[in-house]
Amino acid sequence: DKSAVDRPWRRSFLGYSVSWHKRQVRLRVAPKSLKAFMTKLRPLLKRSRGQSLTTTIQKLNPVLRGWANYYRLTASKRPVAALDGWIRRRLRLILWQQWKRPRTRARCLMRLGLPAPRAWMGATNGRGPWWNSGASHMNTALPKRVFNGLSLVSLLDTMNRLPSQP
């Protein structure tokens, strides 16, 4: 399995794979590496850890910086952007779980700038935490700039900022 002969875009080497793009070969993150990284992040982003969001972000940042530094040579940014969004959604899920009651959720959403009717509709919709973490009321209340203010490392921004030569 490790020494198989196949097309380069079907194989991976050191976590990288290649893509065929307009007759030009580009490096990309191997799909298996993305899944492995998400599996590594899940314990850090568990909803029942009983920690504040800032503590979770502090524990998450070194892992994100290291991963972004290793995969800075990749040319395809779409999977990295999707992974970035997934991390922020998991953090929104942690907040939704910490707020627990509909009244607390509505109060916190209003504190974050949502109008009262929209906050109450979002807080009392009866949907699960994962659905609510991706819903528009949570995305409006907690956009990317809020997480940037909490000093969350953005994978895409870090990879764009780092030089692409090793």
Rank of each mutant, 00 (worst) to 15 (best):
L41S: 11
W99H: 05
L41D: 05
R90M: 07
Q98L: 02
P43F: 03
R103A: 14
R11L: 14
S19V: 08
L60S: 12
L64R: 00
L34D: 13
K32F: 05
W9V: 01
G85E: 14
L34M: 13
L41Y: 11
H21Q: 14
D84M: 04
K100N: 08
P43S: 04
L109C: 06
G85N: 09
Q24P: 03
T104G: 05
H21P: 03
G85F: 01
R10C: 05
R88P: 14
A30E: 11
A68V: 09
L53M: 09
R92C: 06
G50T: 09
R92H: 08
D84Y: 05
V18P: 10
F13K: 02
S33L: 01
K46T: 08
R7P: 02
V18F: 14
V18Q: 07
R49W: 07
A68H: 12
L83Y: 09
R88T: 05
K100I: 02
L93I: 00
S52L: 08
L14S: 03
N61E: 14
G66E: 08
L41R: 10
P79K: 01
V25M: 11
R89G: 11
G85Q: 11
L53K: 07
P43Q: 02
P62H: 00
W9N: 01
G50P: 12
L53S: 05
P62C: 02
L95A: 06
V63A: 13
R107E: 15
L109P: 12
R47G: 03
N61A: 11
Q24S: 10
L91M: 03
T104N: 13
R47I: 00
S76R: 11
S17Q: 12
L27F: 15
R101N: 10
V18K: 05
R11F: 04
S19G: 15
K35N: 12
F13D: 08
L60A: 13
T39G: 12
K46R: 14
L83Q: 13
Y70V: 04
I57N: 13
T55G: 15
P8V: 02
T56A: 02
R89D: 06
L53V: 09
A68M: 11
Y70D: 08
V63M: 08
A68K: 11
Q58W: 03
L27T: 02
G50V: 07
K32T: 15
N61K: 03
W9G: 00
R26H: 15
S19W: 04
T56W: 00
S76T: 09
R89V: 00
R101S: 13
L95G: 05
K77L: 12
K59E: 15
Q97S: 09
W67F: 14
Y71H: 00
K46Y: 10
W20E: 06
L64A: 01
K100A: 04
Q51K: 14
V63K: 12
G85M: 04
K59T: 07
V25W: 14
A30G: 08
Y16T: 03
T54V: 05
G66H: 10
